[in-house]
């Protein structure tokens, strides 16, 4: 079961949001049941994953892997990054691409690691239908691409049966 999906670009903006908790929310994204607008929620989510990413980077230097030098600090480090966190009722998965895009998915807590699924969304859906779209030129806008939206929806549905 997948609850929602956020996509952030490297300028920290949320460029796509989807929610599968309640089917009729699809048309009406701005009103969520817990009275927080999704834009506000997306900012909190970004803050959380950003802080945890830094926290994991700091802590992993304590847990055996040597600290990298300062100039490598901004580079994406897939070897020791933050992957997911879990609470008693949901699990948040995080995947960052080399270009700084951040994919975040919330699912139910029993879900295994979804890194591969997020990578697949990036490779087969984002790159195919957003990057290769000739009309898409600014990476700072919200993705209003029906094909992307539908494909993502289909993909998530097929995954969370």
């Amino acid at each position: 079961m997948i609850y929602n999906f956020y996509l952030f670009n490297r300028h920290c903006n949320c460029i796509y949001y989807a929610n599968w908790q309640n089917e009729k929310d699809d048309e009406n994204l701005n009103t969520k049941n817990n009275d927080m607008k999704w834009e506000e929620e997306a900012k909190l989510v970004y803050g959380v994953v950003y802080s945890l990413r830094n926290l994991c980077r700091k802590l992993s230097s304590v847990n055996g892997v040597p600290e990298k030098s300062e100039k490598d600090d901004d580079k994406i480090d897939e070897d020791r990054g933050f992957l997911s966190y879990k609470t008693n009722s949901y699990k948040l998965h995080y995947y960052e691409t080399a270009s700084g895009l951040k994919f975040v998915v919330c699912s139910d807590p029993r879900t295994p690691n979804l890194q591969d699924m997020l990578h697949q969304i990036y490779r087969d859906i984002y790159v195919e239908y957003v990057v290769k779209n000739p009309l898409y030129h600014s990476d700072n806008d919200y993705i209003n691409n029906t094909l992307f939206k539908n494909k993502l929806h289909e993909f998530i549905k097929s995954q969370s049966k």
Partner: peptide, 11 residues
Amino acid sequence: SSGIEVIEAST
């Protein structure tokens, strides 16, 4: 939900 219980990082 409650707060974070487990954080998984690669190492």
